[in-house]
Amino acid sequence: MANGVLVFAEQRDGVFRGPAFEALTQGRRLAGQLGTDLSAAVLGSGIAGTVEVLKEYGVDAVFVADSEHLARYTTEGYADVFSKIVREKNPSIVLMPASSLGRDLAPRVAAHLETGLITECTALEISDGRLLGTRPVYAGKALIKTFVKTDPQMATLRPKVFSAETISESKETHVEQVDVTTGAERIRAKVIEFQSSGGDRPELTEADIIVSGGRGMGNADSFNVIEDLADALGAAVGASRSAVDAGWRPHPDQVGQTGKTVSPSLYIACGISGAIQHLAGMSSSKYIVAINKNPDAPIFKVATYGIVGDLFEVVPALTEEVKKLQAA
């Protein structure tokens, strides 16, 4: 009989990532509701000493697969080892973060285990003793509630939707090394190189937050107020067609009909009037903030929140507030 909640605790270079903590927090909640244990699986190389931090999230057990073949993520290597752990430990629920790695790995693991997988969940609950996941479909225009009919019930969690919460009291955690027999020869797709994207800013199309500037910027140099805000938020920088046409930003930064289509959770449009060409590329953003001095600008029609005013006053003030918040 399957029992317990197992979380794939993603780490890179010995550092656990935010989405792993979010998954652990949810796992703990679900395990509590089911009255079962929470365990975590960690795959990597030379990571034995790093699992200590997981205890803060109230795990009952940590299964560590430590092998040099697992130093760098490979779909086949990780899927083999992780599904072996799942088979052995036989949990009823397996949670993984829907990070780049999780999105790649989870379906492969589900295939190994011949079980169902709910990807990109934005809510998880227990209903009649089974996991019920809620996830957006049709680019967020509808939600579905889904059960997995087989065991283990697998789900991935959309990053940043859930919070990561540690527990206050300390807890006994059992750490167990698992036998790793995956041979390197069974791994056919290997990462041979990693190119860091250089700048710390995320890709436009993948960014969670985008700060964009338009004609109202006036010139290329004033984009530094946009960049400051973007960096404070960890956001990407975008631009409207007129800003790109004027030569203030390179074409890859262009959002809109003839540029990129984006749907971040937050889109901050500064000095962008909201021509239809621009709206076509960003109106599916979850929240839109518009800062424009013209109160009749069409951008305010689609904006969740608008500030009428000079962007050169408003944006730096906003940057200050964001920095204050982060310092707190």
Binding site: I118, A142, I144, K145, Y287, V302, Y305
Partner: peptide, 17 residues
């Protein structure tokens, strides 16, 4: 392997202001 039990509209987009 999975069963969709319900499809629903997401909460409406907050009214812009």
């Amino acid at each position: 392997k999975i069963e969709v039990i319900e499809m629903l509209k997401p909460p409406p987009r907050p009214e812009g202001r």
